[in-house]
Protein backbone atom coordinates (compact mmCIF):
# COMPACT_ATOMS: atom_id res chain seq x y z
CA UNK A 1 0.00 0.00 0.00
CA UNK A 2 2.44 2.65 1.23
CA UNK A 3 6.08 2.20 0.38
CA UNK A 4 8.77 4.54 1.63
CA UNK A 5 12.34 4.04 0.47
CA UNK A 6 15.44 5.79 1.76
CA UNK A 7 13.50 9.00 2.42
CA UNK A 8 15.68 12.00 3.21
CA UNK A 9 14.01 15.26 4.16
CA UNK A 10 15.30 18.64 5.29
CA UNK A 11 13.59 21.82 6.40
CA UNK A 12 13.36 24.36 3.58
CA UNK A 13 14.03 27.37 5.75
CA UNK A 14 17.07 26.13 7.55
CA UNK A 15 19.58 23.64 6.35
CA UNK A 16 18.59 20.96 8.78
CA UNK A 17 18.05 17.34 7.92
CA UNK A 18 15.16 15.73 9.77
CA UNK A 19 14.67 12.40 8.01
CA UNK A 20 17.86 10.54 7.20
CA UNK A 21 16.81 7.52 5.20
CA UNK A 22 13.44 6.13 6.24
CA UNK A 23 12.46 2.73 4.88
CA UNK A 24 8.96 1.55 5.59
CA UNK A 25 6.29 -0.54 3.92
CA UNK A 26 2.70 -0.64 5.14
CA UNK A 27 0.65 -3.42 3.59
CA UNK A 28 -3.07 -3.22 2.93
CA UNK A 29 -5.04 -4.54 5.88
CA UNK A 30 -2.24 -3.92 8.35
CA UNK A 31 -1.72 -1.47 11.17
CA UNK A 32 1.81 -0.22 11.60
CA UNK A 33 2.80 1.91 14.57
CA UNK A 34 5.72 4.30 14.76
CA UNK A 35 6.99 5.17 18.20
CA UNK A 36 9.93 7.29 19.09
CA UNK A 37 11.20 10.05 21.34
CA UNK A 38 10.51 13.74 20.75
CA UNK A 39 12.34 15.13 17.76
CA UNK A 40 12.89 11.78 16.10
CA UNK A 41 11.06 12.92 12.94
CA UNK A 42 7.71 11.14 13.36
CA UNK A 43 5.52 14.14 12.68
CA UNK A 44 7.78 15.34 9.86
CA UNK A 45 7.21 11.99 8.17
CA UNK A 46 3.44 12.47 8.36
CA UNK A 47 3.64 16.03 7.03
CA UNK A 48 5.95 15.14 4.15
CA UNK A 49 3.67 12.30 3.13
CA UNK A 50 0.60 14.55 3.16
CA UNK A 51 2.33 17.35 1.25
CA UNK A 52 2.75 20.18 3.71
CA UNK A 53 4.93 23.13 2.62
CA UNK A 54 8.28 23.77 4.20
CA UNK A 55 9.98 20.44 3.64
CA UNK A 56 12.40 19.42 0.96
CA UNK A 57 12.83 15.82 -0.08
CA UNK A 58 16.54 15.45 -0.83
CA UNK A 59 16.55 11.75 -1.58
CA UNK A 60 14.38 8.66 -1.66
CA UNK A 61 10.78 8.04 -2.63
CA UNK A 62 7.30 7.38 -1.33
CA UNK A 63 4.61 5.60 -3.30
CA UNK A 64 0.96 4.84 -2.67
CA UNK A 65 -0.14 1.75 -4.55
CA UNK A 66 2.88 2.22 -6.78
CA UNK A 67 2.19 5.90 -7.53
CA UNK A 68 4.77 8.50 -6.59
CA UNK A 69 2.98 10.74 -4.12
CA UNK A 70 5.82 13.15 -3.40
CA UNK A 71 5.24 14.89 -6.74
CA UNK A 72 1.53 15.34 -6.09
CA UNK A 73 -0.33 18.34 -4.63
CA UNK A 74 -1.87 17.68 -1.21
CA UNK A 75 -5.37 17.46 -2.75
CA UNK A 76 -4.16 14.92 -5.31
CA UNK A 77 -2.71 12.77 -2.54
CA UNK A 78 -6.04 12.92 -0.74
CA UNK A 79 -7.90 11.92 -3.88
CA UNK A 80 -5.43 9.07 -4.35
CA UNK A 81 -6.50 7.78 -0.96
CA UNK A 82 -4.09 9.23 1.58
CA UNK A 83 -5.45 10.69 4.81
CA UNK A 84 -3.64 12.37 7.68
CA UNK A 85 -5.40 12.70 11.02
CA UNK A 86 -3.77 15.87 12.36
CA UNK A 87 -2.10 16.09 15.73
CA UNK A 88 -3.50 19.62 15.96
CA UNK A 89 -6.70 19.79 13.87
CA UNK A 90 -7.10 23.26 12.37
CA UNK A 91 -9.96 25.60 13.23
CA UNK A 92 -11.75 27.10 10.23
CA UNK A 93 -14.13 29.86 11.34
CA UNK A 94 -17.11 30.41 9.07
CA UNK A 95 -17.05 27.00 7.37
CA UNK A 96 -19.43 24.46 8.85
CA UNK A 97 -18.39 20.84 9.30
CA UNK A 98 -21.11 19.79 6.90
CA UNK A 99 -20.01 22.13 4.13
CA UNK A 100 -16.36 21.29 4.71
CA UNK A 101 -16.86 17.55 4.50
CA UNK A 102 -19.26 17.64 1.59
CA UNK A 103 -16.91 19.90 -0.36
CA UNK A 104 -13.98 17.61 0.40
CA UNK A 105 -15.85 14.41 -0.39
CA UNK A 106 -17.17 15.66 -3.70
CA UNK A 107 -13.85 17.23 -4.67
CA UNK A 108 -12.21 13.83 -4.20
CA UNK A 109 -14.93 12.08 -6.12
CA UNK A 110 -14.66 14.56 -8.95
CA UNK A 111 -10.89 14.10 -9.06
CA UNK A 112 -11.46 10.35 -9.41
CA UNK A 113 -14.14 10.83 -12.10
CA UNK A 114 -16.78 9.47 -9.77
CA UNK A 115 -20.29 10.82 -9.37
CA UNK A 116 -20.75 13.46 -6.69
CA UNK A 117 -22.79 12.58 -3.62
CA UNK A 118 -26.16 14.33 -3.40
CA UNK A 119 -26.99 16.55 -0.44
CA UNK A 120 -29.56 14.06 0.78
CA UNK A 121 -27.27 11.04 0.60
CA UNK A 122 -24.52 13.03 2.24
CA UNK A 123 -26.67 13.95 5.22
CA UNK A 124 -27.87 10.39 5.60
CA UNK A 125 -24.33 9.05 5.53
CA UNK A 126 -22.84 11.62 7.87
CA UNK A 127 -25.65 11.17 10.39
CA UNK A 128 -25.04 7.44 10.53
CA UNK A 129 -21.29 7.79 10.82
CA UNK A 130 -21.27 10.60 13.35
CA UNK A 131 -23.58 8.75 15.70
CA UNK A 132 -21.07 6.15 16.80
CA UNK A 133 -18.49 8.90 17.36
CA UNK A 134 -20.99 10.75 19.51
CA UNK A 135 -20.96 13.78 17.23
CA UNK A 136 -24.40 15.36 17.16
CA UNK A 137 -26.13 17.32 14.41
CA UNK A 138 -25.38 20.59 16.19
CA UNK A 139 -21.65 19.93 16.05
CA UNK A 140 -21.89 19.25 12.33
CA UNK A 141 -23.46 22.65 11.79
CA UNK A 142 -20.76 24.45 13.76
CA UNK A 143 -17.64 25.83 12.09
CA UNK A 144 -14.88 23.25 11.68
CA UNK A 145 -13.17 22.65 15.03
CA UNK A 146 -14.00 26.13 16.35
CA UNK A 147 -14.67 25.93 20.06
CA UNK A 148 -14.28 22.14 20.01
CA UNK A 149 -12.61 20.44 22.96
CA UNK A 150 -9.46 18.39 22.36
CA UNK A 151 -11.54 15.22 22.32
CA UNK A 152 -14.12 16.65 19.95
CA UNK A 153 -11.42 17.71 17.53
CA UNK A 154 -9.92 14.22 17.42
CA UNK A 155 -13.33 12.59 17.05
CA UNK A 156 -13.95 14.99 14.20
CA UNK A 157 -10.74 13.81 12.50
CA UNK A 158 -11.96 10.23 12.71
CA UNK A 159 -15.36 11.25 11.34
CA UNK A 160 -13.62 12.83 8.35
CA UNK A 161 -11.68 9.62 7.89
CA UNK A 162 -14.87 7.57 8.04
CA UNK A 163 -16.58 9.82 5.49
CA UNK A 164 -13.68 10.06 3.05
CA UNK A 165 -12.87 6.33 3.25
CA UNK A 166 -9.17 6.65 2.43
CA UNK A 167 -6.98 3.68 1.51
CA UNK A 168 -4.09 4.74 3.68
CA UNK A 169 -4.61 6.45 7.03
CA UNK A 170 -1.85 8.18 8.93
CA UNK A 171 -2.71 9.09 12.51
CA UNK A 172 -0.34 11.66 13.96
CA UNK A 173 -0.38 11.46 17.76
CA UNK A 174 -4.13 11.10 17.75
CA UNK A 175 -3.95 10.21 21.44
CA UNK A 176 -2.44 13.53 22.50
CA UNK A 177 -4.84 15.58 24.57
CA UNK A 178 -7.34 12.76 25.03
CA UNK A 179 -8.71 11.41 28.28
CA UNK A 180 -9.33 7.70 28.70
CA UNK A 181 -12.94 7.76 27.52
CA UNK A 182 -12.19 9.90 24.49
CA UNK A 183 -9.27 7.67 23.58
CA UNK A 184 -11.58 4.67 23.69
CA UNK A 185 -14.15 6.38 21.50
CA UNK A 186 -11.53 7.45 18.96
CA UNK A 187 -9.94 4.00 18.92
CA UNK A 188 -13.28 2.31 18.36
CA UNK A 189 -13.79 4.67 15.43
CA UNK A 190 -10.45 3.68 13.97
CA UNK A 191 -10.98 -0.03 14.59
CA UNK A 192 -14.32 0.13 12.82
CA UNK A 193 -12.43 1.30 9.73
CA UNK A 194 -9.89 -1.51 9.81
CA UNK A 195 -10.34 -3.37 6.61
CA UNK A 196 -8.45 -5.69 4.32
CA UNK A 197 -8.04 -2.99 1.74
CA UNK A 198 -6.87 -0.26 4.08
CA UNK A 199 -3.49 0.45 5.65
CA UNK A 200 -2.81 2.36 8.85
CA UNK A 201 0.24 4.15 10.14
CA UNK A 202 -0.24 5.14 13.77
CA UNK A 203 2.27 7.62 15.17
CA UNK A 204 2.39 7.84 18.92
CA UNK A 205 4.60 8.53 21.91
CA UNK A 206 2.87 6.13 24.17
CA UNK A 207 1.95 2.52 24.19
CA UNK A 208 -1.52 3.12 25.70
CA UNK A 209 -3.14 4.02 22.35
CA UNK A 210 -1.85 0.70 21.03
CA UNK A 211 -3.82 -1.12 23.73
CA UNK A 212 -6.90 0.06 21.90
CA UNK A 213 -5.66 0.05 18.33
CA UNK A 214 -3.70 -3.19 18.18
CA UNK A 215 -0.83 -2.88 15.70
CA UNK A 216 0.54 -5.66 13.54
CA UNK A 217 3.98 -4.11 13.33
CA UNK A 218 5.77 -1.62 15.58
CA UNK A 219 8.66 0.57 14.44
CA UNK A 220 10.95 2.60 16.62
CA UNK A 221 12.12 5.84 15.06
CA UNK A 222 15.12 7.79 16.28
CA UNK A 223 17.14 10.58 14.73
CA UNK A 224 15.33 10.42 11.41
CA UNK A 225 15.52 6.66 10.85
CA UNK A 226 13.60 3.53 11.69
CA UNK A 227 16.01 1.86 14.09
CA UNK A 228 14.05 -1.17 15.12
CA UNK A 229 11.02 -3.08 13.89
CA UNK A 230 9.11 -5.77 15.69
CA UNK A 231 5.71 -7.02 16.79
CA UNK A 232 3.34 -5.50 19.37
CA UNK A 233 5.71 -6.64 22.15
CA UNK A 234 8.12 -3.89 21.07
CA UNK A 235 5.60 -1.27 22.23
CA UNK A 236 5.42 -2.95 25.64
CA UNK A 237 9.17 -2.91 25.88
CA UNK A 238 9.12 0.87 25.33
CA UNK A 239 6.39 1.26 27.91
CA UNK A 240 8.39 -0.68 30.50
CA UNK A 241 11.94 0.46 29.81
CA UNK A 242 11.67 3.72 27.87
CA UNK A 243 13.56 4.43 24.67
CA UNK A 244 17.03 4.56 26.21
CA UNK A 245 17.63 0.80 26.22
CA UNK A 246 16.49 0.31 22.64
CA UNK A 247 18.52 3.24 21.41
CA UNK A 248 21.60 2.00 23.26
CA UNK A 249 21.09 -1.43 21.78
CA UNK A 250 20.99 -0.20 18.17
CA UNK A 251 23.70 2.41 18.58
Amino acid sequence: MLEIKNLHVSLEEEDKQILKGVDLTVEAGKVHAIMGPNGSGKSTLSYVLSGRDGYEVTDGEATLEGEDILEMEPEERAAAGLFLAFQYPVEIPGVSNNVFLRTALNAQRKARDEEEMSAGDFLKTIRAKSKSLKIDADMLKRPVNVGFSGGEKKRNEILQMAMLEPKMCILDETDSGLDVDAMKLVSEGVNALRDEGRGFLVITHYQRLLDHIKPDVVHIMADGRIVKTGGPELALEVENNGYADILAEVA
Binding site: D53, P74, E75, I92, T103, A104, A107, Q108
Partner: peptide, 8 residues
Protein backbone atom coordinates in the same frame (compact mmCIF):
# COMPACT_ATOMS: atom_id res chain seq x y z
CA UNK B 1 -3.41 23.05 3.93
CA UNK B 2 -6.05 21.39 6.10
CA UNK B 3 -8.65 21.80 3.36
CA UNK B 4 -6.26 20.62 0.65
CA UNK B 5 -5.22 17.61 2.71
CA UNK B 6 -8.90 16.61 2.65
CA UNK B 7 -8.98 16.81 -1.12
CA UNK B 8 -10.22 20.34 -1.79
Amino acid sequence: FYLRSRGV
